[in-house]
């Protein structure tokens, strides 16, 4: 008696072909991803239903926090310190920041992972104004940003920090910045990939050299100009 019919043992090895084919398609997908991603963005940007927002890289903001948990801060307990190589270090609360001259910018937001949100308004105090008020010393070369999530850090050179399109933002999409978007105060570096726009900003320290931030220590570019860094060719945002 034959325990197995011959077709169970000696058929075509289709399983192996499907397996190897899937692997091959995966590798091909990685190679073709930049092209595919651009094509997808072209399609999803014209979608009036917004349903494509549910798909990968379909638009809209993504929530990222690198910390275990982030404390919530509000008008009573939020403080932004400005210190380091300055003549007049000080701390601002939310009301004091709101009393300073505000600048509104409407630019695209570009994430280094590919998603882009068009025409997003940010409003806040120019970083240059805060630096001028603090009196930056001549030995200063750069800024180090720290965040009240306790983990995230960012950096800019002094020249980058003084650009008019770099804000200490208090408002985003024409409303106060909620906790999930990095509120009540976040950095907004319009011409750079969005990881430079540190959320939950709590400290501005003027330094004598650039100290790479959180993502830069993980391989991302320190000078993160949109379209001219990180091996990407996106349309510049500012």
């Amino acid at each position: 008696m034959n325990p197995e019919p011959p077709e169970e043992r000696d058929g075509t090895p289709v399983g192996r072909r499907v397996f190897l084919g899937t692997l091959g398609l995966g590798a091909l997908g990685v190679l073709a991803a930049p092209t595919l991603q651009r094509a997808m963005e072209g399609l999803t940007s014209k979608d009036p239903t917004g349903l494509t927002g549910l798909l990968p890289n379909g638009g809209g903001f993504r929530y990222y926090s690198v910390a275990a948990s982030v404390p919530a801060k509000n008008a009573t307990d939020y403080r932004l310190t400005v210190g380091g190589l300055v003549d007049r270090p000080r701390a601002y609360d939310l009301a004091e920041l709101r009393d300073l001259p505000q600048t509104r910018l409407v630019r695209d937001v570009q994430c280094v992972t590919g998603w882009r949100v068009p025409g997003t308004p940010f409003e806040g105090v120019r970083l240059a104004d805060l630096l001028d008020a603090a009196g930056v010393r001549r030995t200063a070369k750069a800024i180090r940003f720290t965040c009240f999530d306790g983990t995230y850090t960012e950096s800019l050179t002094l020249d980058q920090a003084r650009r008019p399109d770099v804000l200490v933002a208090l408002r985003m999409q024409d409303k106060g910045i909620g906790h999930d978007h990095g509120g009540p105060v976040r950095l907004y570096v319009a011409p750079m990939y969005f990881y430079k726009s540190a959320k939950w900003l709590s400290g501005i320290t003027v330094t004598d050299r650039v100290e790479p931030g959180y993502w830069e220590n993980l391989g991302y570019d320190v000078d993160a100009w949109v379209g001219r860094s990180n091996g990407r060719t996106d349309e510049p945002t500012s």
Binding site: L20, T22, G26, V30, L31, T113, G231
Partner: peptide, 30 residues
């Protein structure tokens, strides 16, 4: 096959120094 593709692309996203950054973006997409 799909599990191994996920493993491969996942490793590229995890160990950023393994490959150039554009690979990481492509791996994320896949």
């Amino acid at each position: 096959g799909a599990t191994l593709v996920m493993l491969g692309t996942g490793l590229l996203m995890w160990f950023t120094h393994l490959a150039p950054l554009v690979w990481r973006t492509s791996a994320t997409f896949v």
